[in-house]
Amino acid sequence: MDIIHEQLPRETVGRDTMVRFRMQFQAAAFAALEILRGKEVDRIYCDYHDDFVVRRTVAGVVEYHFFQVKTKAKANQQWDVDEVFALKKRGELDTKEKLEAIRNSIAGKLFVHTIEFGDQCREVTVLSNVHFKDEVYEVVADLSAGTSEKKYTRQLIEKFADVISPDIPLSSAQIEAARKKLSLLANVQYIGDTLEAFGLAAHNAIWKHSEIALHQHEVERIARSLVTLVEEKSCAPIGGLSKTDIDMATGVGLEDLLQVLSISTPVYQTLLQGGDPEAIKNASILQRVLKEAGASDVMIESASRLKVSWDVWMRNARHTFPDFKLDLLLEEIEKKCRAWLLGGGALADLDKCIMELLDSPIGKQFPVLDVDLLFGALCAAIVRRAAR
């Protein structure tokens, strides 16, 4: 008789630890998706200096946002002041040991970043799957204000410099700036012991940041791949590496995300350099449609270059040809594109569409048009239709 499940296991710490790490990886992976916006966020460091760190470049200045991910097993549990700050509500904050306990607390470790990184530390955040008690929010608010009605918080404010920088004197401006940088992110719904909630949130974030439409089977694959990517970055050895190599080993960047999304970096770069403001989304559309039609990677890269050539030609043509003639040409291209897609989108039929465009009455009014330009025109039409 198998009695393995009838006896209580000696300990389950390892299993609980893996669940916590999984949530940490999910939180970092979700943060990485903001890179797709192509705005300020350009890299997420995984388990480097903290659970994860968001790097932003704002007006040419690099800033870092540090995150501690703290979770509890039950949804109705809450974090209290002692857990977050190691702060006792009774007694005096009058010994080295008490100050050191606060410095080694969840919030204390984050506050140290505000001194070590100075102005480049944008913010420090405790992120959790559960709520914080009201008293925790009150301490955060009072620290920011620099005053409090509660004695234990007033003591923390008075001893703040001794807590976070016992060996290096701080100016009043440094102390005030540091106190204001702590924030709380509670009851986060995109982290959990399974990937279901994360997958849904990741799908929504990908659409929000890049408008890339995904099929359900793609969402599941991408969710797994994102978390695996962060796990690999979190576990990568960094001893002896250069700064550049550490960036690559520990950080998630745009190229990593493009790979997870199965978007060709050369196709994306070609569209981006061609002035396409939605290069990520359009690279995804072009690659997906042409791949389904049977095009090779080389042909898809060529198609991206030809689309850029067509876009450039169109911008110049607006100054050369009458608008109504260009509109007629674009309408004919749209008709051919629509018919090709409705007909099954076979690669072999694209050549037929191009030749029909060349021989059409409106096509003959533009002698400069050739096979390459019209292939680019059809690619542009594919992107427009899919983006609607």
Rank of each mutant, 00 (worst) to 15 (best):
Leu8Asp: 01
Arg10Thr: 12
Val13Gln: 00
Asp16Cys: 03
Gln24Pro: 12
Ala27Glu: 13
Ala32Ser: 15
Ala32Gln: 12
Asp50Gly: 06
Asp50Val: 10
Val58Phe: 01
Ala59Glu: 15
Glu63His: 13
His65Asn: 14
His65Thr: 14
Phe67Cys: 09
Val69Lys: 09
Ala73Asp: 13
Asp82Ser: 12
Val84Tyr: 03
Leu93Pro: 01
Thr95Trp: 10
Ile102Glu: 06
Gly108Ala: 07
Phe111Asn: 05
Phe111Glu: 03
Phe117Cys: 02
Gly118His: 13
Val124Tyr: 00
Ser128Leu: 00
Ser128Met: 06
Val130Asn: 09
Tyr137Gly: 14
Glu138Val: 00
Ala145Arg: 15
Ala145Cys: 05
Gly146Lys: 01
Lys159Val: 02
Val163Leu: 10
Pro166Val: 08
Pro169Met: 12
Ile175Asn: 07
Leu182Gly: 02
Ala186Lys: 14
Val188Cys: 08
Gln189Pro: 01
Gln189Arg: 13
Ile191Leu: 07
Ile191Thr: 03
Asp193Cys: 05
Asp193Arg: 01
Glu196Thr: 14
Gln216Cys: 02
Glu218Ile: 07
Val219Trp: 04
Glu231Gly: 09
Gly239Pro: 04
Asp245Gln: 15
Met248Leu: 07
Val260Gln: 01
Ser262Ile: 06
Ile263Lys: 04
Leu271His: 08
Gly274Gln: 11
Ile285Met: 08
Ser296Asp: 13
Met299Pro: 03
Ser302Pro: 10
Ser304Asn: 03
Met314Gly: 03
Met314Leu: 15
Asn316Ser: 09
Phe321Asn: 04
Lys325Leu: 15
Leu328His: 02
Glu332Lys: 11
Ile333Lys: 00
Ile333Arg: 06
Gly344Ala: 06
Gln365Leu: 13
Leu374Pro: 04
Ile382Trp: 07
Val383Ser: 03
Arg388Ala: 02
